[in-house]
Amino acid sequence: MKISEIDIRLCRHHSGMTGGELRDGQGSELEFLVITCKTDEGLSASSFGYAGRGARPAGEIAATSLKPFFLGRDPLYREKNWQDFRVSDRWWHLTPIYSFGPFDVACWLLSAQAAGQPLYKYLGAYRDEVPVYASSLVLPQPADYAEQALAVKAAGWAGYKLHPPGDYAFDLEAHRLVREAVGPEFTLMSDPVAAYTTEQALRMGRELERLDYHWFEEPLADENFHGLRELTRVLDIPIAGAEVLAKRPYSMAECIASRVVDIVRADVSWGGGVTAVMKSAHLADAFGVQCEIHTAIYHPLELVNLHCAAAIKNSEFFELLWPTDYFDFGLAQPLVIENGKAQLPQGPGLGAELDWDLIEDATFDVL
């Protein structure tokens, strides 16, 4: 089986986001790619691809560096493709962390389709459902986080994670109000997205311990190994990180071996596709470390994340951004969540159909 044709769609979706939901205050039209790989045996698989703030530059990189690489290759030879691209990328491609992922995802989906198995069973299933938690965007006031956390709890989901704006006093108030609102038993996490100094992170970590938060994610930049290692050493609350390191899982290995963080993060979008997620999870598992699957933003990619989470033991949750209606486009049918757990589809490959009417409407160019 060989990949005989690749289409790269440049897409723009009007989500309704105003810009206040992100710390930099800039609005986002949620531009994305849709990568379609067709084989000489008549199989076809498509994956959404992250595009940052522009599908045009992301698509040009994909068309220049990834499309020529994958054309003519066998999607079943995923490890060879992975290893060969490591060499190719170093020789002056140096692509962004999100470029390889959708092509790797498409190869896995083609392979699972050929085997007649849903992706998670093709990988080697561990479970058929995964507890889901909601992950906030940046909200205007501390009380808004408490109100949102109550809505998530009322929906029956398993937990809630705050993305506060990064002002220490605001953030601390938000974390306190959320805990007061949901009570002592509901699972809460914090992710300030590298907003603090080491000293602020240490103080916030101690406050979160008193509030019984489940983990403290990316309090410092992922590459700040020295500061993160100190937080991990001093604090009892688990420190999570490594979600935007390049060259994972290899760069992640040092984070695990020398306890830069307590929990590592991986996802199919920013981390190198299904191959990288499974390598990362298995590496972490060998050290007795959790590898929590990080949101891939767009629900067609979240579904691939879910397949990976269902094929590993050392990931406690499945993450979805809230409000979900900003990001739940792209699938013909919504993700199924029952009793706070995301359910795995049973069809071959992705196990679900993409919403091609929406994709067609969103497409502004094809490369």
Rank of each mutant, 00 (worst) to 15 (best):
T363R: 06
I337W: 04
A63Y: 07
M204T: 06
A62I: 02
D285Q: 15
V304C: 04
A296K: 07
D325S: 12
S136L: 02
D24Y: 07
A221P: 11
F32N: 05
L43Y: 12
E41K: 14
M17S: 09
H13D: 10
C308S: 03
A63T: 05
L344H: 04
A276S: 13
D236A: 14
A310K: 00
S315L: 02
Y298E: 12
T198S: 14
L344P: 01
I293M: 15
L335R: 03
T275C: 05
I237A: 11
S135G: 00
T324Q: 12
K247Q: 13
F70I: 08
P345S: 03
P184W: 04
W157C: 05
Q346L: 14
A62E: 02
S88Y: 12
M1S: 09
M189F: 11
E302M: 13
S315E: 06
A266Y: 02
D285C: 13
A58R: 01
Y168L: 15
L245N: 00
D74N: 11
A154V: 08
H14K: 15
A284Y: 00
A58G: 00
A63G: 06
G101Q: 01
G124I: 11
L211C: 04
Y213H: 04
Y213F: 12
I297Y: 09
W356S: 01
E60F: 08
G25P: 11
P118G: 09
E209D: 09
V289Q: 03
F48M: 05
V132T: 10
S258M: 14
V193A: 14
S258P: 00
G241W: 02
Y326H: 13
D128Q: 11
R9A: 02
V336E: 15
P57M: 05
I237V: 15
E185V: 13
R78D: 03
Y120W: 13
Y196N: 01
L303Y: 00
G20R: 12
Q148T: 12
G116E: 04
V268R: 01
A221L: 15
Y326T: 03
A125G: 03
A281M: 01
S46Y: 02
G273C: 00
I6N: 00
N339D: 15
A55Y: 06
R248Y: 03
W322K: 06
L22P: 00
L177P: 02
E31F: 03
I3Q: 02
V289M: 13
R127W: 10
P165Q: 10
H175G: 05
L321M: 10
A151D: 10
A309H: 05
P142T: 08
L123F: 07
Q83C: 07
F225G: 04
S44R: 11
Q83F: 05
H307V: 09
D191E: 12
A114H: 14
P184M: 05
D167M: 08
R23G: 01
E173I: 10
V193D: 07
E207Y: 11
S88N: 09
Q141W: 14
W157F: 13
D40W: 00
P300G: 07
V268I: 10
Y145T: 13
A149L: 04
A286G: 09
A112C: 14
G59A: 06
G351S: 05
A125W: 00
T363C: 11
S88E: 13
A332R: 13
W91A: 14
P238E: 07
S269H: 09
A114N: 13
